[in-house]
Amino acid sequence: MAGRPRQLGPPGEPRRIGYLYVLPAFLVYAVFALYPLLRAVHLSLFDWDGLTVGTWAGLSNYQEVLTDERLRASFGHALVLMVFFALIPLVVGLLLAAILHRASVRGLGFFRTVVFLPQVVAMVVIAVAWRRIYAPDGTINSVLTSIGLESWTRGWLGEYAFALPAVGLIGTWFESGLVTVLLLAGMGRIPPDLYEAARLDGAGAVREFFAVTLPSVRGEIAVALTLTVIAALKTFDLIYMTTSGGPGHTTTVPSYEVYRQAFELGQVGLACTIGVCLTVIIFAISFVITRVGDRVAD
């Protein structure tokens, strides 16, 4: 939207009245978002149970995040979820979008509507649906039984080895449509003569993909990764509704630990510390992805 020559300087004329227009929005934002964020940083330096007087703790809460086995594991799980929420959908999306982009097919609009639908459904509803699919007497197990693989059936969300990938797969399902739609839009903007030139050079479908399609959608890939990686880091509802971090602590994630430490264990300072770390990580990741995306695009 930027890039017009007259917008090189700041827009518009100098007007004091600007403060008045900004004030109401800024006030609500400052009181209910910015101030709580500063408070979180402040509280992260205390040991506080939320009831009695807190005691100064310095950086010991941060130390605990780094050393406590369960908390460290939660960040590791977030990393695993990034594979399921971001990496797999990116590969799936690239593959699907590239195939669909090669030929004009009918019904693409309908397809877009359908595959984007998961994005607008409340995560609680999605969790209710997938809990049914994974249940001991659920969809997956009855399919396995009906094709004679009864020995493979299990409570998918209840077993140590399977719970985290099972939750991750919900994320793959949730994000793949979004990524595909995003990449399809990006590929739609590639000038056709780029392909004609590649074909004159005798490029096949695969070389065409790596030489023309992939470089042209770098910007979209950066956007897709930003959206999905952040979504992977903010999976509170899904964990709360499917596994509550269990079995053991095999599926707990930082955003769930914030809730658990503050409201189930009364470790308010530690909960704020996890929240602050989560914020820093989210900012760092989106900064890096947009920077790398920009540089590659130049």
């Binding site: 209910f32 978002a33 709580p36 964020l37 408070r39 979180a40 402040h42 509280l43 939320g50 952040i230 880091l233 903010k234 509170f236 930082p254 955003s255 914030v258 809730y259 503050a262 308010v268 909960a271 704020c272 996890i274 929240g275 602050v276 989560l278 914020t279 989210i282 900012f283 989106s286």
Partner: peptide
Amino acid sequence: MMPAEAIVVPLFF
């Protein structure tokens, strides 16, 4: 980008 997880605890108290 600020996650609700970070602000919801101090806000509550």
